[in-house]
Design a binder for these strands. Structure first.
Lengths: 237, 237
DNA sequence: TCAATTAGTGTAAAAAATACATTTAAAATT
DNA sequence: AATTTTAAATGTATTTTTTACACTAATTGA
């Protein structure tokens, strides 16, 4: 079989930045690396791309192998390709961002795998350029969430408006007027009001909402505006 | 020296989608591929990543080698990684998008290299998945140009408001009211009005404008809104 | 000097975003 | 049983932004 002769072949890896939200804070899922170099150090979920799989398939596989997660929101972030980013040998890394409902997978992750959630604000030292990957992923999340309803991926099936608002406030580190926020969110017709209330955080209780999945798919690509303009005047992309 | 043993190494390439605008139409720069397979077929500018260079460096190098272009706007688009996208062997391709002033480089490109501009609407059949890369790049351009002043990269140092407007109208295939357009554009303080007029396309002549480079850098990341909302309700990203 | 052509400009109406405070529901306490 | 406590829910007036829309100006060539 003919090949491209005299060209330089290299390893290609995928690394996944997995964001979660616990109702108050954003978290990132990390594992202790299982092999040298930097064995036992905290790392993003990563792995080498195999011969017969696309990058997307590799990211799915790595996520499943290391955490048990399947069918999660997963998006290509960007490549990290400094020649010496891995001290052992040249590795091109493609970073993927995943958003998951932290509670849905919490048990599974803790029990079967040795992944651990860390507060985004208190991440341990990470191997290689993984801290930079997290930074870049966070920037992208801030950018994208300002226009598209992706943060819903972080919430359980049923959630309340105060929870949703806290998630937006956390991401942009700001306070949003709840009257304006609920008007904007509800005007998209993305949410269905449920009968029940969540009484875990107030006496009155807050009504649960769920996603109208039809509208969600349609509206996903259209442009929303949940975040006040003053908060998004200088996003980094 | 230790390596990651028993892992699969593969070729990594960069491919550049180079957009230009000739005042009326968008164009894409293509070359005839110089080696098998698909030798002589039309292709994006591409090349393999070398051992000691990052992807960005590779893209810069490829662009320079194949067209003579330097210091152009170049942005990572996304990876294309289907295992069989290249019939010879596994190649992961990272696509980059470049925006250039078509006239500034026209001579250089035609004379020294065998690259050729094609109308975006009339591209020839391209090798491998390059047509898909162009599609994706165009989607990204539409998305990004709706919020950031990147289209200025396509224009010469001095340009007129009608030219600028034609560029936006072409990208979104729409008509924009010129009173509203000029008000919006000028309100950003991104443009400096010049003394001279361009009389090439009207008897009255249209004043030239140039970019206020200070403001341009500052404003690049902030969010603009040159395109009417009705035109950007369903961008694909 | 008149006709033709494209550039340039202003205003009123509609829509969207913002600022802002009180009432309501339910539980816990007295 | 009444009162207090806590967070949820809600409406309106003001400001800002966006849109729709049509005539005048400058210049060239006939």
């Amino acid at each position: 079989m003919i090949k491209y002769s005299s060209q330089n072949r290299m390893l290609v890896a995928v690394d996944c930045i997995i964001f979660g939200f616990d109702g108050t804070d954003y978290k990132v899922l990390l594992i202790q690396r299982g092999f040298a170099p930097e064995k036992e150090k905290w790392s993003l979920m990563g792995g080498f791309v195999q011969e017969k799989e696309s990058l997307e398939q590799a990211a799915d596989r790595v996520l499943k192998q290391l955490t048990g997660l399947k069918n999660v929101y997963l998006e290509q972030l960007q490549a990290f390709s400094e020649p010496d980013r891995d001290p052992i040998e040249r590795v091109i890394a493609m970073a993927y961002v995943a958003l998951i409902d932290i509670h849905k997978y919490e048990q599974q992750i803790n029990d079967d795998f040795h992944a651990r959630w860390f507060l985004l604000r208190e991440l341990p030292k990470l191997i290689f350029d993984h801290a930079q990957m997290v930074d870049t992923a966070l920037q992208r999340l801030r950018y994208k969430a300002a226009f598209h309803p992706i943060l819903f991926e972080l919430l359980p099936e049923k959630f309340t408006l105060p929870q949703l608002q806290a998630m937006y406030e956390g991401l942009y580190d700001t306070k949003i007027d709840k009257r304006n926020f609920s008007r904007k969110v509800l005007s998209t017709n993305l949410l269905i009001k449920e009968q029940e209330k969540d009484k875990s955080s107030s006496k009155k209780g807050a009504f649960y909402y769920s996603i109208d999945k039809e509208h969600y798919k349609e509206k996903f690509e259209s442009l929303l505006n949940f975040v006040p303009k003053t908060e998004i005047t200088a996003l980094n992309e």
